[in-house]
Computed example of a mutant assay.
Amino acid sequence: MNASFASALRAASDVASTQHYPHGALYVVATPIGNLADISLRALHVLQLVDCVACEDTRHTQGLLRSYGIEKGGSQLLAVHQHNEHEGAQAVLAHLQQGRRVAYVSDAGTPGISDPGTRLAAAVHAAAMRVVAVPGVSSVTAALSVAGAIEAHGAGTGFVFAGFLPIKSGERSAAVEQLSRESRCVVLLEAPHRIADLAQALAVLGQRRVTLARELTKQFESVTSQPADQLPPWLAADSNRSRGEFVVILHPASVEKDVDLPAVLLQKLLPVLPLKTAVRITADITGASRNALYDQALALRRDADKI
């Protein structure tokens, strides 16, 4: 055990043991994404308390637990990862049906966001048993909290989590084209060996700001914001900038207040698309009324025919 966590274990027992932890329940536990000190006291207590721990990688999780002074035997660690999530869920259900408490952890962060865990939680719900959240670190919320990207009001309010984009270049470009029509903040994830390809695909977004959050909570953490078309040269200027795991945040698309966006879109789309299709796409992007857009499109077309 890392001696620094001895007092944390005692504190976890003092502050969290008074709560009720039902038997026959699955505890979805968030774990650190890099800095071991980011574990919560409640998570430490639950990981000590449960009868077994389901996890992506049993060796990784056993090492993590031992860092905190928590010992679980090999039979108490269940492998549940993306390649066996259905079978693993059945093994977890068998434990729960016997009244045991089971924790689920991913290799890092909050399970079920981009890591396995969704199918397991769904299977436990389907069996009419309880799923308990033990919240904590998430790379998604950590990056959003420092990016300054989410608008408080207006069309850009909130964010969309898109995760990893397709690996194939054509599919990735199509996904970026679709995201370009999203006015809200968009959160992506990417691995170091593909970050340059993603940056190249995002460059078509021009001056739209993009935040790259790399190695969050770790020693070489870095957060930078650049216009999308500047990302490829910025990454190429220093090979260290492409190392580590990335959260990539597309800031909300800026729209000038004095621009009639529906009219601009219709003017661009009507020459190349059927009228109804142009109206539908414009309505999807702007949120404007389809009936009003249809009338506007008819007027634009009539004006064009007079020229």
Score class of each variant (00 low, 15 high):
155 A>Q: 15
178 Q>S: 04
230 Q>W: 06
91 A>V: 06
118 T>W: 00
136 G>K: 08
218 K>P: 04
290 R>Y: 00
168 K>E: 15
146 V>L: 06
304 A>E: 14
286 T>R: 07
283 A>Q: 11
60 H>N: 11
135 P>E: 12
232 P>G: 05
169 S>F: 06
200 Q>I: 02
95 H>W: 12
217 T>K: 14
54 A>Q: 03
174 A>T: 12
69 G>V: 05
214 R>L: 10
265 L>F: 09
246 F>G: 10
28 V>W: 06
299 A>E: 08
39 I>M: 15
56 E>P: 02
289 S>R: 07
28 V>Y: 02
23 H>P: 01
91 A>E: 08
269 L>A: 14
218 K>Q: 03
205 L>Q: 14
97 Q>H: 12
89 A>L: 01
180 S>C: 03
208 R>H: 12
36 L>I: 01
109 G>S: 04
2 N>S: 04
215 E>G: 11
57 D>R: 09
33 I>W: 14
206 G>N: 14
122 A>P: 07
217 T>H: 15
74 G>M: 05
304 A>I: 02
177 E>R: 15
17 S>Q: 14
65 L>A: 06
237 A>H: 10
145 S>F: 05
22 P>F: 00
41 L>F: 12
304 A>H: 12
113 I>Y: 05
193 H>D: 07
252 P>A: 07
262 P>K: 01
174 A>Q: 15
150 I>V: 15
176 V>D: 04
127 A>H: 01
171 E>G: 11
93 L>M: 06
54 A>D: 02
226 Q>E: 13
